[in-house]
Design a protein around this nucleic acid. Structure first.
Ligand SMILES: [Mn+2]
Ligand SMILES: [Mn+2]
Ligand SMILES: [Zn+2]
Ligand SMILES: [Zn+2]
Lengths: 144, 144
DNA sequence: AAAATAATTTATAATCATTCTAAACTAGAA
DNA sequence: TTCTAGTTTAGAATGATTATAAATTATTTT
């Protein structure tokens, strides 16, 4: 599996995306690893620069990440603050969000059970259930 | 209760905020109504201009909204896309988020039951449980 | 009530993330 | 090889938010 990227080429082709040098580089950086992870664009840009010799323009990183997201390779995660996070774990799951550190930790889908849900408004369907558990330090924020 | 804003003055004072003309105007626009609502800064700025005669600078709207949020009068809501929403309903509750229209609909806390939760990491505490149900149109996005 | 002070407001500039543009480049088809 | 549509790119443009620093105002002190 290592050093093999035929499957990336295939996946890109089957999404109607040409397997360009830049896209394959991104595929390797994002998907050729055991653990999934969360990242920002800025974050990812730096990782590419460190990890690979390829130079990819910022515009292309944006374009590619959005293409990957639109084709279900990546998930976009919404958090407070004005930064957008992405998740290489595109399957359904939830998150701890540490308000102090900004850390984001995966929670497996089966570790949270939502046993009651409202029904969707007329003509609409529930497409995704997302639970975010916000964390803070244990010590009571004792005022004074 | 109408045309009475002593309680706003009191609340501001008890938060260590001086009851300025601008803050009281914001309090009236945000809290003197039956229904709670969701808004963006831009959104709120326009509402102020329509509703009141007061002219409040953009910087003050930002400052005040953040002060109100930090003191628990408002909640900040995180959604996909790069806009920040606020919620005059500061109590614990959940949301429908319509991916097509961008609409945000409240779900009462008791209409969602989360019956299994993971435990928080060491030294951390779960401060907030937020469930977002993403909506899309019923019709299957049939590809061709 | 006037003066002193500290907080607040404001216009405007600065920053930062993201998107747009249009020219150069490239993958795949003919 | 030539053609064409798709892709990449640098840089400009946009839009939201934050910073700055001077003017104003609320509150405290005299
Ligand atoms: Mn904010
Ligand atoms: Mn995006
Ligand atoms: Zn995740
Ligand atoms: Zn709400």
């Amino acid at each position: 599996m290592i050093n093999d990227f035929k499957h990336h080429v295939n996946r890109l082709r089957s999404s109607g995306l040409r397997p360009t040098k830049q896209r394959l580089t991104l595929c390797k950086v994002l998907f050729d690893r055991k653990e999934t992870f969360h990242f920002t664009i800025d974050n990812l840009k730096k990782r590419i620069e460190k990890t690979t010799k390829s130079k990819i323009s910022l515009a292309t990183v944006y374009n590619t990440v959005h293409a990957f997201k639109n084709n279900g390779y990546l998930r976009e995660i919404s958090l407070q603050g004005n930064k957008t996070f992405f998740d290489t774990n595109s399957s359904s799951h939830h998150h701890f969000y540490d308000q102090d550190t900004g850390d984001l930790i995966d929670i497996k889908n089966e570790d949270i059970i939502v046993s009651k849900l409202p029904s969707a408004p007329k003509g609409k369907k529930i497409k995704q259930i997302e639970v975010t558990l916000s964390l803070a330090n244990n010590n009571q924020n004792q005022k004074k």
